[in-house]
Structures are given as C-alpha cells and as structure tokens.
Design a protein around this nucleic acid. Structure first.
Lengths: 115, 115
DNA sequence: ATACGTGCAAAACTTTTGCATTAGG
DNA sequence: CCTAATGCAAAAGTTTTGCACGTAT
C-alpha cells in the first residue's frame, strides 16, 4: 500500500506525508509501522530515499527512470534517464579526480506550464 | 564566529555540528542562538543552506565557488565552478521544457586519494 | 527608556525504540 | 507453538518559541 501511495503521488513524498496518506486510507495504521515499512522497502530496493527541498523523500524504484524533475509550483514530476549527469561525472573525474555517482536525484525547478 | 567555523571546516556542517563546535569554543553559547544566527546569516546571504547525505548543511557564500565536492571517506571538500551543471540545465530545458537552477550543490563522492 | 541579542526552559516536530499483543505458518 | 508484524507509548533527536534579563544606544 505504501508502494501504491508512492506510485499514485504526483510528487515525491516525505515520511510524514506517507503517514498522513496512510491515516486517510487506513486510520488504524501507526506511524511506526510506516517508518518501519519504508526502511524495509528501501533495504529490499523497492523504493529510494533521497534529499530534496522538502527534506528526505521517497520514490518508487522503477527501472530506467532514475532521476526526478519536480515542479516547484504545481508539484508535477517527470522521470529522467539515468545518464543525465554522465557528462558532469566525467568532468569531475577528469578535472578534479573526484569520483561521483549521481543517483535518484530530485531536481527542483519549473515545468513548462508553470514558467 | 559561526562564519569562521564554516570557513575553517574542511566539510559542510549541519546545524548540530555548529552547535557542537560552538560549545567547544564558547561553552556558554546556547543552541538557540546558533540556530537564530544561522537563519540570520542565511537571510543576509552570508551562508547557504543545502541538502546533503548528512541532512541540511551550511556553506560560506564566497564568490566564484558555488558547488562543493565532499569526499565520503576523508571529508575533504573542493569548491567547484558554478557553471558545472550548465549542460545539464540546457538539456533539461531543451528536452523536457523544465527550468532548473542548480545552486550550491553538495556533491558526495570519493576524492583521488580515497578511491 | 528602548530596542535588541542572549540564555534558559519548554514546546513542537520528526523519527526511533521497547514492549505486549496478535495473526499466520 | 513460534515467528514476525503491529499498535501503542515513551524516548530520542532536532529545531523553534516564549520569556526574562542585561547591554548598548
């Protein structure tokens, strides 16, 4: 059900958001269960945790879509191909000898209709 | 003095880190003062707040250095030119009609000697 | 006198943990 | 039975707020 919530949401949700969603759908579910389930889902690779303006947010772990554009106005999200940052990663290695892996980035910005 | 701490630190610090540093240098300073000062410094543009693995961290706002590479092993940081993400920003506009501004990114990775 | 910055304490908010209960194998 | 998941309550950790006091203008 948590996975459903993540899938249904148009934007990445924080743990607190999840708890609130859960309360609506199943009032008897406790927040500790939500937190524990999120940990579990993350361990098993079903969801990803990453940082955004809202704090720590969770995403589904569908194949082939590994970054998320989030519109700061309407909240709409778009999935983006994983290799978006490859050029940047290469530059950082070449110029700074610095090894980076951009994964599941939450990228805040403005979508076409909100600009 | 908070600005000094930020400058002196080899890696971005969380608010709690600051409080701890402060306690060492001036034990009588209260955490609320640290939090309030950080808010103030951010409003006046002296420091920046951004997200990293550690949570919310603060940086100095020197001109010309706008992203930070942080080594996950040794904690060393390197400042990176602001336009690092320009190609990515352009791609996101062209391909997704999505307007993004990467600012003061904290980029986690491994430095040369820790790889 | 007044306005401001501070320390202190308490509150608020988020996340984690311990424990007793329950449901399923 | 026995294991594992749950609800509940309390604890822990982080950040914010109210208030009274002192200092400098």
């Amino acid at each position: 059900m948590i996975v459903d919530i993540i899938h249904d949401s148009s934007s990445p949700l924080t743990a607190e958001d999840m708890v609130a969603c859960m309360k609506k759908k199943m009032p008897e579910v406790d927040k500790s269960t939500v937190y524990r389930t999120l940990d579990l889902l993350e361990e098993t690779g079903c969801v990803y945790r990453s940082e955004s303006d809202k704090g720590i947010v969770f995403h589904h772990a569908d194949e082939g879509h590994h970054h998320h554009l989030v519109c700061n106005k309407c909240g709409k999200t778009v999935d983006v191909e994983e290799d978006l940052f490859l050029p940047v990663e290469k530059l950082l290695v070449d110029k700074y000898n610095f090894q980076v892996n951009f994964q599941h980035m939450v990228i805040q910005g403005l979508c076409k209709s909100c600009q």
